[in-house]
Design a protein around this nucleic acid. Structure first.
Lengths: 192, 192
DNA sequence: GACATAGAACTGACCGGTCAGTGTCGTAAT
DNA sequence: ATTACGACACTGACCGGTCAGTTCTATGTC
């Protein structure tokens, strides 16, 4: 087999692992399946990851980091707050639109208490994108003075919902429009 | 040991199972632990449930049904749409406030493709409470004419978020108020 | 006596993790 | 250019622990 650079192989394993773990629950996933999916031997996996648990955890971080990367790449400073929020929603939805199975990793996983901290940090990073945008919106008087932490969580809650319930005949732009319609009116400055 | 009626014993097993399964991932849960928690013998569990999978699945349904029951018991017809929504949010949040671990069952579980249908039905039932309330609100011109299915999902998405992120020093009523503040303005009839 | 139960002892399939053996590379001596 | 060698990545058959599910007996309850 052609040898890959170490980082590439690790990447390949993570991609395979996130695919396979996304399909079935942890206990139904065989390390053999991941090895097969990655096109490598089972033993090789253990050169890169200590245990099945480690690999699982790394796969989740991999998915979250990929999403964070996509967000960082798309957002730019000059946007208005509403435009920024719309972009965030669109990027997240696009990211999972064709990879719905990966969504299980976006949900909060309560079952790893020890590593919970590390996961929380990653999710915090995504939350902060939204939170800071809301704060900026409040400062510029685009939004009313809501609690930015709560607002950001509510926003991401709606995004997650859309991710979960959308059907194949839904159009992404329509759903984003509906979501933004509710959220922006919801946080707009009181009228009259 | 005092003999319980069959239904009671099944109920006791389900309660124990939902407690234990909520604490650790499926593969780390021993049938022995559930038996111990329920205060019964391991063999007895297999008189009521065919396999560990069956028990797990039944435990999830049990939790969802308990929640649905709580909703049915609390809601009454005469409420206005906003009041009804607020009640739904409060009941769901209260239900999980002191039993956060059970939240994993409220999340969409994508990993049981066969039984997915049955689970979807239960969640659909909860969704319908919200959806019908929104429809009623639109009819009575309390809300603008949004898509009720989407609206209901957005609403429940926010509720789930609150369930997930709240901290011990948050007050339930405050969070409900914030949530309702955003959602009600979000779906209010356009002003001016 | 009929029946439910506890719970200990048992069985065997299953699968995470290992490691001896194989292949591949870079390098250096000839 | 060829050969040789050391280092190390890779492989997959295999091992051994674990635990779901079964069976059985003693102990109750109705």
């Amino acid at each position: 087999m052609a040898r890959l650079k170490t980082a590439d192989k690790e990447f390949a394993i993570l991609e395979a692992a996130s695919r396979v773990f996304a399909q079935r629950p942890f206990h139904e996933v065989l390390i053999d399946s991941i090895a097969a999916d990655a096109g490598i031997g089972k033993g090789t996996i253990y050169r890169y990851f200590e245990t099945k648990d480690d690999l699982y955890f790394a796969a989740i971080l991999h998915v979250l980091d990929t999403l964070t990367g996509a967000l960082e790449a798309t957002l730019c400073e000059e946007m208005t707050a509403p435009r920024r929020l719309e972009t965030i929603a669109t990027v997240i939805l696009q990211h999972f639109w064709e990879r719905r199975q990966l969504l299980v990793f976006f949900q909060r996983e309560e079952h790893f208490p020890i590593r919970h901290e590390e996961l929380a940090t990653r999710r915090e990073r995504i939350l902060r994108f939204v939170q800071e945008t809301i704060l900026a919106g409040i400062e510029r008087c685009e939004f009313r003075g809501i609690d930015a932490r709560i607002g950001a969580n509510l926003f991401l809650g709606m995004v997650r919902s859309v991710n979960l319930f959308h059907r194949s005949d839904d159009r992404l732009e329509d759903l984003v429009a509906q979501l933004m319609g509710v959220f922006l009116s919801g946080v707009a400055r009181r009228q009259g």
